[in-house]
Design a protein around this nucleic acid. Sequence first.
DNA 1: AGAATAGTGTCTATAAGACACTATTCC
DNA 2: GGAATAGTGTCTTATAGACACTATTCT
Lengths: 231, 231
Amino acid sequence: MPTPPTDLHTFPRPSVAVDIAVCSVVPDIDGEMHLAVLVHRRETRTETGRWSLPGSFVREYERLADAVDRTLRDKAGVEGLHPRQLLVLDDPKRDPRGWVLSVAHVDTVPMSDAIALIGGTDVAWAPVVVGDAPAGALDLPGRHRSLPFDHEVIVTEAVADLRRRYAERPDPAGLLAEPFTVLELRRVHEAVAGERLQKDTFRRAMLPGLRETSGPVSGSVGRPARRYRRA
Amino acid sequence: MPTPPTDLHTFPRPSVAVDIAVCSVVPDIDGEMHLAVLVHRRETRTETGRWSLPGSFVREYERLADAVDRTLRDKAGVEGLHPRQLLVLDDPKRDPRGWVLSVAHVDTVPMSDAIALIGGTDVAWAPVVVGDAPAGALDLPGRHRSLPFDHEVIVTEAVADLRRRYAERPDPAGLLAEPFTVLELRRVHEAVAGERLQKDTFRRAMLPGLRETSGPVSGSVGRPARRYRRA
DNA sequence: AGAATAGTGTCTATAAGACACTATTCC
DNA sequence: GGAATAGTGTCTTATAGACACTATTCT
């Protein structure tokens, strides 16, 4: 809390927006799973036609998490997520229209909803580029190479946040529907991490955070895998 | 970046403030060092007389880090710090005067400046309560028991941030003047961690992040200690 | 039986913790 | 020499990685 002025309204106030890196794990043509970020094609004056992260201005007395939920509902028809704050973007020149602060968030959608979510051609999943690409680089549709504004900073932080959390615990963001097998879990973690993980080490690291389910085991071929839920 | 409205000014805008947990390590009566947070006595209408964290409203087109610097210069005469963003406090009811978002920060002042910084009776170092106290509890002057608003959340995050960073590297915030001995460094780390650290393990963990200085070694008694700088 | 996938025993390399020893100074 | 503090050798314990083996299913 600041030292209050005699009147709040004597202070200039910035516009405040939320920008969101919505993440999920989606398959490519070959069935390989990849961490991807939701981008949409800009239809408005600034940077029209480029792909960017969804965002919107915060309404009066609205909580930031609610602004995130509302934005995703309106722009992508997604519900019931768990946004996490990443950082505030405060460069006074970041928006040509004026003084706009943006609170960047990361959020996730379950893999089962990810594909259905892409309705038209104005929304897409852009895989995170793995390897030694520039930080925050996405594999955008068409021949687009980069995100506008400071959105690459947001992607960088979002990916770092997810990787940190997934290194600790099994599927903390709930990308995978329960119950699941350790193999399914590992595929998701590999997609997030952007690298292969060892099957035995991975299993032992994750087991303390899992509860075995007694439910029936399905198996196409080979020994049927046990199924688990998050503990 | 959000979908732009036709005009920025059609959107309601919140007041935006910065609140700062300024941290340092200060000695108590017995010479023991403790992690402490700078608090000041409120002089204004809301919560008058209570101790709280310094903060102020952000000026037009001002960067948040600059608002932090300005606030600390004005309220405590501190210069040249390195604020880090912690989180945005966005409860619409957090300030009775209206819609105020606050961006919480953590910052540090070198130990050598910490004592001189306390000028009058309206500013004080409040040691972080160690042990199983409520999260974010401070040992405030007088008989005050708690911080107003959501300041305890800020202290909790500030302390967690510092402890995380100090567990990794030697004195990342530069609390200690260079050059220093490993013993001096360990005392600072113990104050931040709120617990004793083992001398041999600590030395081995920190050495990779230190550069030995060839400068003259002072010693009152016992084998003179080597002196180091941060690498 | 053989293929395929799941799960585990175990060896090794590495790091953390703890203890005790050696080293260097001042008196 | 003795007190005091600095720094290190090394043993123990825990953990991560790797490899190979065993287990359970389907065809």
